[in-house]
Design a protein around this nucleic acid. Structure first.
Lengths: 343, 343
DNA sequence: ACTCATTTTCAAAGCGCTTTGGATGGCATG
DNA sequence: CATGCCATCCAAAGCGCTTTGAAAATGAGT
């Protein structure tokens, strides 16, 4: 069923039917009702490609998931972020399109998506320091929003981010206040912007407390469970092992906990742990009392907000740059406690 | 840069340029080379909407993520499945489109996606028992593939699934062979098809062993970490608590482990645990020796295969129905051991 | 040189929609 | 009654591509 057929059934022109369905004023209310009824009855759905061709808009937002050859990994926070975004897209009549690209062709993926007219805007996830893609997108003139920021990029751009520095600053201070002096940081990949900011917060808190950073206590890699476990076990072997561990994700925190258990150490007593908690739906940080003391910020909510900001940007391309910095809460759970007395 | 402009630059007709770029034979090799060079130089990318309109194909596959009001949850296996699928889509020139729909409108979401001409085929994830959507999709005539199966649906359809029954049968037998008699099952939501099959396998193994199923030991809900923890803690309170626990996901297995630790029980010694492991990239089941004894089947690989099967289906709509049953491996890790001697 | 078959190129129609620039008719106004 | 003004509706152009049917160019064969 297409417009032409529907209009023939109704004995109206395509113009009128189109206008009736799209809410234009120059059509009699009676006919509008009649048209809408017929459309519903026959299950007419305007072809989105044809509509897109005619209007020049695709009503689609693009996301690119990097699936590099090095790290065949899909961050679990991806699911919740996307769910949040997709929900808002749906509210505004947008669909969501993914492209999978490996690290080398990721820029090309964005270019292709936009220049083919497949999407009206894109979301850039997981920006690195000096993120090249931001300038590329800027130059292309595609509306976009960055989930995160990128230190070193000078051009203005829309972004939404968690105040990573502040939240790790606060978390570290919290540990310092509990008497900890040997505080480890199990961070995400070094070149990710968020990891840099978290480290900066961590280092600032150490400096405030007059503590010297120890490179043995600073680890960074993809934040898997296995990684959290591995690094923790490794650090526990040190001559002067950490009494507290900060980690950048709930997933690796679970690995940390596993390593502590294996070593016969009690979390929150022998070793304190603070995790960053993205408030994932399948991996809630406990039910009432949080399992881990954590810096919490819902990535799903971030997805929703990113979507809304992007849609606004598409609507008004010339508005001044919009940015949004979310503060993470520091929730206290059972994984932290005063530094144990050494014999 | 569109076709018309490019053809004018080249002094050729749009027809020839189009054909040259799309590899049709009726064009001189010299001109083809010339056209391709010019296209590359000017960064010409055919508008996908226009192309779709002309060809009647959209080169897009649709996925619908249910984000019901009841369970605001995105299954983490979703990410890996999609990553696998998207990779294969990309190989074949397809894009991937998401729509977010709540439980009540999910059927409508599929209908809309296809009838608007937005997608050439769809993937149905997480089928329930008597999955209504399958018949809907069948009647609509949209090419589709089901990740999983649906007991009670009589119409033929393409699917790819893990042999859930067999894998839980084997896992349960394994526990029985270790001497366990009180074996609990922490399963997914009752109405999910996979959950039914896993239970069927579990029950069959119990029957084989002459054990009577105990409804106190069979739990089912959304497979979160918190849920695994909650049910385990609950069952440990029983007069006759389980000595072994089967669980449908690594995520809830982590909750199980947490509950065991809290109760001062040693996993693999006091209580054995077997989990189903989807081999998620961020949640590997240990590095060399598996943490959990598990029934393992890569959901990413399933995504890849689903994508390929769907693309074949789109190419040849009249081929006989294709199905694919994957066997999960039973990998032995540290979470299982002989039943402890009761005093 | 001329025909005929091939190869190569092209003009134009069509995909299903929106939108511009009228047409048409009814109604109040002078 | 003629005029002008809305309120409604419509025909046709255009979005950027593919594809059909035909024309032009080339080459082989006589």
């Amino acid at each position: 069923m297409n417009l032409k057929q529907l209009s023939e059934i109704l004995g109206l022109s395509q113009t009128t039917v189109s206008r009736a369905l799209n809410g234009y004023p120059e059509v009699n209310e009676d006919t509008r009702v009649r048209v809408q009824a017929a459309a519903a009855k026959h299950g007419y759905r305007p072809n989105s490609r044809a509509k897109g061709l005619a209007t020049g808009r695709s009503m689609v937002i693009g996301h690119v998931i990097p699936s590099s050859s090095r790290h065949e990994m899909v961050n679990p926070i991806f699911g919740d972020f996307v769910a949040g975004a997709a929900r808002k897209y749906a509210d505004h009549g947008y669909d969501l399109m993914f492209t999978n690209a490996d690290d080398t062709s990721i820029e090309d993926a964005y270019r292709s998506l936009f220049q083919r007219g497949a999407v009206d805007g894109v979301v850039l996830q997981g920006p690195k320091v000096n993120e090249h893609r931001i300038e590329v997108l800027n130059r292309m003139g595609v509306p976009f929003i960055v989930h995160g920021r990128s230190t070193g990029v000078e051009v203005p751009y829309d972004w939404i981010d968690v105040n990573n520095k502040r939240s790790f600053l606060r978390a570290t201070r919290f540990l310092v206040d509990l008497g900890h002096r040997r505080i480890a940081l199990i961070n995400g990949l070094e070149d990710m912007d968020f990891a840099q900011r978290r480290r900066a917060g961590y280092l600032e808190a150490l400096r405030e407390a007059g503590l010297t950073p120890d490179s043995d206590l600073m680890r960074s890699a993809e934040m898997t469970e296995v990684y959290g476990h591995h690094e923790t076990r490794d650090m526990l072997q040190l001559d002067d092992p950490p009494t507290a561990i900060l980690t950048s994700s709930m997933i690796s925190a679970i690995g940390v906990r596993r390593a502590l258990n294996e070593a016969g150490l009690k979390m929150g007593k022998d070793v304190s742990v603070i995790a960053h908690d993205d408030d994932l739906s399948y991996l809630k940080n406990g039910q009432d009392v949080p399992i881990f003391t954590a810096t919490r910020s819902s990535v799903r909510r971030a997805g929703e907000m990113a979507a809304e900001m992007l849609i606004e940007r598409i609507k008004s391309p010339n508005d001044p740059v919009k940015t949004r910095l979310l503060e993470a809460e520091l929730v206290v759970g059972g994984s932290t406690g005063p530094v144990p007395n050494r014999h």
